[in-house]
């Protein structure tokens, strides 16, 4: 069922929804971008439909809505741990197809990996319903969702297309039908991007022998000088899920405090460092290799269905050193092709 809703009516509907839901969407933070006089677009609660930035790609992904960058796990006094609490309200997220597909990857890590559920993720995830936002035709320059097969989804409650004066809404979830009862009915289902300007070829890594040769590729070394290990790529990634836990005490008395987790980045030098100082993957190139292989090789090897990377391209957009992840994948594809060719030639000889 589709409806054509005016901006004014949409805002009234949002107001109604806000009684039960916190509504999140990409929002513009003026002049808060990395460079002077540039804006930052990231997820935040909205109060009106005009707050939604629908015609640009957000710098940061919606993962932070349900997987906050800093999250208290427990509050402790001297002798006990108390689980942190969350708001009762349910959550609506305006999200692109790639991000909705990305949440499935987060679900895999937090709710399935190791056969246990992370309750901090679960308790927020359970509250989420998606409002699918259509992308512009072909997506944005750095998008490669089609290559990653994450350009489509049917996992949404509402879908929206922003027009000049109206918003077209598709309702898939009956819960919301009543709200739109008085609106003008129209034929509308969202259209998905079917081709991106950026395309990637995923190398097929089918043996540990090949994997070892990939480890030795010179291409990784080129990132030793290019990558500054800032972790901007992982911070914006919808599928990056790593975190570090730490305890902090409140300054006033030093006796109570919290155990919290904060996002961590495998691109940072200290990601693997253990108490005692031993660490692994000491160069930027090795860390780049680790991240690349995780996104387009070993996640799928472990969980079977799909690669971790959804091709949102945010890492490309946000890298201050202009390293393109899409280009990295394609470079690896070419190198793997060469390695395989060399192997076949050797066999013939």
């Amino acid at each position: 069922m589709g409806y054509c809703v005016s901006i004014k009516r949409m805002n009234e509907i949002l107001k109604e929804l806000q009684k039960e839901y916190k509504i999140y969407a990409p929002v513009r933070f003026e002049k808060r971008g990395r460079y002077s006089d540039t804006d930052l677009i990231r997820y935040a609660e909205i109060n009106s439909i005009e707050d939604v930035v629908y015609d640009e790609k957000s710098d940061f992904s919606p993962k932070e809505v349900i997987y906050p960058i800093t999250q208290a796990l427990f509050y402790f006094t001297e002798y006990e741990y108390m689980e942190s609490k969350i708001d009762d309200k349910k959550i609506l997220i305006f999200a692109r197809p790639c991000d909705i597909n990305g949440f499935r990857r987060l679900d895999t890590i937090f709710l399935k990996n190791g056969g246990t559920e992370d309750i901090y993720y679960k308790r927020l995830r359970e509250k989420v319903k998606f409002i699918l936002m259509e992308c512009k035709e072909g997506g944005w320059d750095s998008c490669f969702c089609v290559s990653m097969g994450s350009n489509k989804t049917d996992d949404y409650s509402l879908a929206v297309r922003f027009e000049d004066d109206n918003i077209l809404v598709e309702i898939k979830d009956d819960e919301f039908t009543n709200l739109f009862g008085d609106e003008r009915e129209v034929e509308f289902t969202p259209e998905f991007v079917t081709s991106n300007p950026t395309k990637v070829n995923i190398p097929e890594i089918d043996s540990y022998e090949l994997l070892k040769k990939i480890y030795d590729l010179d291409m990784w070394k080129s990132y030793n000088s290019r990558c500054i290990s800032c972790g901007a790529c992982t911070a914006v990634c919808i599928t990056c899920s790593c975190f570090t836990t730490l305890d902090v005490t409140y300054t006033e008395n030093g006796k109570v405090g919290e155990r919290r987790r904060v996002h961590a980045s495998c691109m940072h030098e200290d990601f693997t460092i253990m108490a005692g100082g031993l660490s692994f993957r000491k160069t930027a190139g090795e860390r780049m290799r680790f991240r690349t292989l995780h996104k387009i090789y070993d996640y799928k090897l472990r969980f079977k269905d799909e690669h971790m990377c959804v091709g949102c391209g945010r890492c490309d957009e946000r890298c201050p050193e202009l390293i393109s992840f899409a280009a990295t994948i394609n470079r690896l594809y070419d190198e793997v092709k060469k390695l395989k060719k060399a192997e076949t030639t050797k066999d013939i000889k």
């Binding site: 890590i109 990996n113 190791g114 246990t116 693997t272």
Partner: peptide, 15 residues
């Protein structure tokens, strides 16, 4: 032996 923050396959450090 690896760095671990969670011990249960969530934090990613030991992968």
């Amino acid at each position: 032996e690896r760095k671990m923050s969670c011990g249960v396959g969530k934090c990613g450090h030991c992968k």
